[in-house]
Structure formats: C-alpha cells, structure tokens
Design a binder for these strands. Structure first.
Lengths: 203, 203
DNA sequence: CATGGAATTAAACAGTGTTCAATTAAAAAA
DNA sequence: TTTTTTAATTGAACACTGTTTAATTCCATG
C-alpha cells in the first residue's frame, strides 16, 4: 500500500506508541516484539522504522509515555498528601513504589532498555524524563537550606536511594526478598538522610 | 558424536560457564547468545540444554560466577581498608562500585536476567548470592546496637541504597548523569543513615 | 488524467531459543 | 574380542526475532 489517509502522521505515531506500550505491559521488555506491536496496530514492522527511525527510538518513545504516566501518578498522590514535610515525602516515596508495583513491566522497561551513547535522545523525550525529576526537586530541594547545586545533587542521590529499594524489590532480587514493606524502608532512609541536611531551624 | 572423554561432566560444566561468562562480558546481556557461547567452547547448543536443563539455569550459573568474583573483590578490598568504622564502610561501598565499573556487562547481567518464580534456584547458586550479602552483614550489622532481625533489615536496605546509586550510574540514567562521584554520594548516604542507628556510646 | 513522490509492505537475510530424532563414542556384557 | 547397551552430542527443524530494501500502492499535484 501507499500513503493511507486513515491516520495522520501524528496519529500514526501515537497509535504505534500506544500499541507498543500495551504490549510492553503485557509481555515485559524481554518478550517485547516490534513486529507484534506493529501487527496489533494494523501495520507492518517497516512502518515502525519509517516513523521512529529505529527500534531504539521506538522504545524511547514507549518509555516516554511511561514517564508521563508516572509523573501524573505522583502529582495525583501529592494532592491528597498531608501538609507536613515528612508526610509529603512519605506520600511521594509510596507513590513512586505504587506506580512501579501497579505497572511492573512498563516500569522496568525504562531501565531494561540500554541506550547506546551514540543515539541522541529527542528533546521531547528528554523532557519526559526531566519532568519526573523536577517533581522531586520541587518537593524536596526547596525545603532544604542548601544552595541549588548541592540540593540538586542530594535530590538525585535520594532518587537513587528510592530506586534501589524499588528495583531490588520488583526484580525479586535476593536482598529484599523477605522484606514486608520495602517502601517503608525507603521512606525511613530518605527521612534519616534528610535530617542531616536540614538547617537547625527546620528540623 | 556421542560421549566424549575429553571433558568430565564437571569440567564441561565449568568450561561452558567460563565461555558464557566471557561472552557476557564482551557483549552484555542483550546481545548474549547461548549458541555462540557453546560454539566457542567447542560444543553445540544442545549441550547447554543437556548440562544445565535450560537457558535460565545456564544464565544463573554464569551469574553465580560473577557473585563469587564480586565477593572476592570485596574481601580483597577490605584487607587494605582502614580500621575505623567509617573507613571500612567507605572501602566496602567503593569496592562495590569498583567491581561494577570494572565489570559492567557481567555486573548488569545479574539484574538483567529476570528469573521466573516457577524455576527453582539450586542451593549452590543461592549460596553464591547469600555470600555477598553476608559480607555486608559481617561488616555492618555486628557493629550496630540492634537485634539481629532489625540489623538484617537495615543491612538489606543499605545494600538497596548503594545498589540504586550504582545501577542508575552505570545505566547512564537521567538521574545521575551529571554526578561526578556517585560512589561518594552512596558513601555519604550510608554513613548518614548509620549514624541514626548507632547507640549513643558508639557514635 | 497522468505522473511524481511518499507511505507502506512483502520478502529476504542472518540471527535467535527450543526441541528432538538420529548419530556416535564409550562402557558393559557376552 | 565382539556385541550390546547406554548416554552424550549433534544437526536439523520450527517458529520466532530485528533490520534492510526493492517493489508496490495510494495521494496530491501539475
């Protein structure tokens, strides 16, 4: 076939991302198939290469969708969160875990997809990733008595801390198998760390 | 061919693990090929299925080898470590990072391989994984004024904290891209956490 | 209506994991 | 020693991948 008018370029792009995202959720990264994703969208594999340029870019687009959903999930959780600092931090961390648990395959796909340094990430995809970090920046960094640079470093370190708990938990890795409440452990660690970085007047 | 006497069952097993481990180091998990690993060992794919029972068990065996090397690496680093608590903790965390950095592909393969709950892990492979945790248990837990249960929980949480920093760093993930010394951040976080769990007389 | 250009596909290629009948070598039995 | 049994090893088949490219088919424009 040739140019088909049943979908505009943008519609087609979104259609394929949607189909791939759903398939990733069903199968997980290891059993994902671009062929199958295209098939379900009613197109053939080649179309993916046309639209995205390659499999890596397609996977990046799928993961960007996950980042958006994840950000929205966190924002939603923060609406109902308590007003005190510890309460908000706990809500944030538990929402982080909640999204991962309720969307295991697509959450893990974010980290399963290793992107070669050679291929460049579109600014749109970059923004999706930054969006998540910026939520934590807003919630945490502003309340600290640190200069911006130190606060940024600490926030990223806190994200790594929470990520570590969540990743080991969901991969069923040895370290957290017997732990009943990994999210609670992450919350505790984050709060312990934060007390070290509060100015006396804040603690 | 039939039964060949050039390798005993144990030798063959080790030969294949060695070959697979080397290939994993060269290519990484995504581009690993059991066929190629067997080829390099001078056998055909079927042999892997004979010896290990399936691809999953083969990958588990390869990763067990990594765990042994990793444990040895940590023990070696602890020999030259300072005697004070903070110094030993720092040495441990930096050795953790050092192994991962110097063996990126085989280190990441540990977490890339998702093991279905249905397949059971041989006690030998379990021991390889426990061995690593037990090093941290020995170094950290015994110095804390906690009961065994709480200490175990905390140690695993600390491992998750360090793992998170290391994983985000090596995957080139958004959160730690600009961080110059991720290991140092992990060390700082671990020490900050530990001060919260020391009895007054120890701090 | 024709024609050029762009979207879409089908087919080909080189790989993969997995299974299993056929083969072959060594060990056991005669 | 010769034969038979047993077990290790392979090769081929199957159904899949991702990736590239020539051929097709549709649409918009002249």
């Amino acid at each position: 076939m040739g140019r088909r008018s049943d979908h505009s370029p943008d519609e087609l792009r979104e259609l394929l991302v949607l189909s791939g995202h759903a398939l990733m959720g069903e199968r997980g990264f290891a059993k994902f198939s671009a062929r199958e994703a295209a098939r379900r969208a009613g197109y053939s594999v080649g179309t993916i290469y046309n639209v995205f340029g390659g499999l890596d870019q397609y996977l990046i687009a799928i993961n960007s969708r996950t980042f958006h959903e994840w950000s929205a999930w966190l924002e939603a959780a923060l609406i109902d969160a308590p007003r005190d600092r510890a309460g908000r931090i706990e809500a944030l961390v538990r929402a982080y875990f909640g999204f991962a648990q309720n969307n295991q395959n697509i959450w893990m796909a974010i980290y399963d997809h290793r992107i070669d340094r050679s291929i460049e990430i579109a600014s749109e995809d970059d923004a999706a990733r930054e969006g998540l970090t910026s939520i934590v920046d807003r919630e945490v960094a502003s309340t600290l008595g640190l200069n911006d640079s130190d606060a940024r470093r600490l926030v990223r370190s806190l994200i790594a801390t929470v990520h570590g708990h969540c990743a080991l938990w969901l991969t069923g890795s040895y370290a957290l198998l017997e732990e009943k409440d990994p999210a609670g452990q992450a919350v505790d660690r984050v709060l312990e760390i934060l007390t070290h970085h509060l100015t006396p007047s804040e603690s």
